[in-house]
Design a protein around this nucleic acid. Sequence first.
DNA 1: GTTCCGCATGAATCGATAG
DNA 2: ACTATCGATTCATGCGGAA
Lengths: 292, 292
Amino acid sequence: MELKTEIYLGDSRDELARIPTDSVDLIFTSPPYADQRKSTYGGVSVDDYVEWFLPITKELLRVLKPSGTFILNIKEKVVNGERSTYVMELILEMKKQGWLWTEEFIWHKKNCFPGKWSNRFRDAWERLLQFNKTKTFNMYQDAVRVPVGDWAKNRLKNLSDTDKIRDNAKNGSGFGKNVSNWIGRETVYPTNVLHLSTECNNKNHSAAFPEGLPEWFIKLFSVEGDTILDPFMGSGTTNIVAQRLNRHSIGIEILPEYYEMVRRIVEPVQLTLFDLKNENYDSFDERRYAVR
Amino acid sequence: MELKTEIYLGDSRDELARIPTDSVDLIFTSPPYADQRKSTYGGVSVDDYVEWFLPITKELLRVLKPSGTFILNIKEKVVNGERSTYVMELILEMKKQGWLWTEEFIWHKKNCFPGKWSNRFRDAWERLLQFNKTKTFNMYQDAVRVPVGDWAKNRLKNLSDTDKIRDNAKNGSGFGKNVSNWIGRETVYPTNVLHLSTECNNKNHSAAFPEGLPEWFIKLFSVEGDTILDPFMGSGTTNIVAQRLNRHSIGIEILPEYYEMVRRIVEPVQLTLFDLKNENYDSFDERRYAVR
DNA sequence: GTTCCGCATGAATCGATAG
DNA sequence: ACTATCGATTCATGCGGAA
């Protein structure tokens, strides 16, 4: 298998037309937030944001496979002491386009920005909105199981009486649990809250999000050989992680500096891969890191 | 000071008229979610939810002091595999009423209910929407400070040269720091993400939220002697916590069973208080617990 | 190996001041 | 008045090098 990482220089509003209909398994992106990153992206104003974004989401709806998923990392900024509503307006408009809004994950930023204001605390979370084309999307939950917490070690040593039987919830929801089912389990399924730090290593570029973020969603919503798309590539985090996880990927970036930077990272790997066609791919990871 | 805990049996759409204009310091409530708790509240359908709620938020805007805050604990329901949009529509409509949407806190439910579904993970978070009447609301941040992280213990022992002066961020954001400012600090301000477990004590009723949730907001947005309102009292968690923290409170509940239950908890305390007028109020907390 | 320690950095926001 | 710029404030994390 040859792993393809295609990157395009240009505006997503134009470049997305080059991608075939129903061809992408997962879209993971973090668009420039309204009025942020002005120095690099020029900044889309809060008032124009929805109108600016909707033509892109329309194209994304076209290129996504019916079984695919669109994860949108976004957060509304504070304007005049109030949270803006452009994210809500965007969701409402995307539903009109035909998107299903299926879930909202929370990224808890463990090391959020410091600061002190009289009327608000530090902002330590961002939204990861999940949209789908159909209700029967692919989800590979076992790929993101996490080690069972320490609570289990203590809890399971001495099971209480209620732990040994099914203990139904008090609120009549019909939910219940039988804690003894956990005996022997090493891993559990995660929740819809992700605890990740923003990256702060010594790279010479600033990633908007840590690699762990796209990694989690790529594992959850795709398998090896699938195609991942990031229409706001930036420093290429999504594509680099996709490549490491043996997924094809497509990236679109409007700024030449970022485009060139990602190209220098991504191309050597593809050349290497081409030469390695018949070799064992287990060694791929180390090779990639060596190149980078 | 006599501590008043007034509870009304009835529909908030009617009973709120009894509360004077500009008289409440904090409204904290968790309304029945759309189509939830059908057996108890009759269930407001998803489609009618906003229309049903808006007359109430209009009255809440009237009774709240200009310096006050409204905290709304709400989360949209999943219908047919898709998230409903009534929370977003509610926010947009409340803004038209004159509310300011100032912040959205996340309650991370550390011990959310177990379960397994093919197309979603366990839901481990809820929204706490903050609304205000003016931009100059009261906020008592020092009341909810948390212990500083372990990093400080090591870091502050030996300050580097850059730590001793103001060190400006490299990215031109204008952000800088002077680490030596941290010396001697035991506590820091929290973020807008709250980590609380759902309650699991031995009460004979199921509280919609743990006492820690209203406690945090009552401390943050009110002082002793202020008035707290919960227009959907339920089992009275908000009022009970308010009483424990020496705040007056008002509760409105439509179901007689809940109303009677809260009345039995709250009234003995008030009688005791009346007899204690001239005593030291430090002993109040223990007395209340004894009664309960 | 393992732990410890130094250090740069991160989608921020407000109020005052200047144009 | 209304907008643009500037200075002030503040934590926790992962990395890399040292012990």
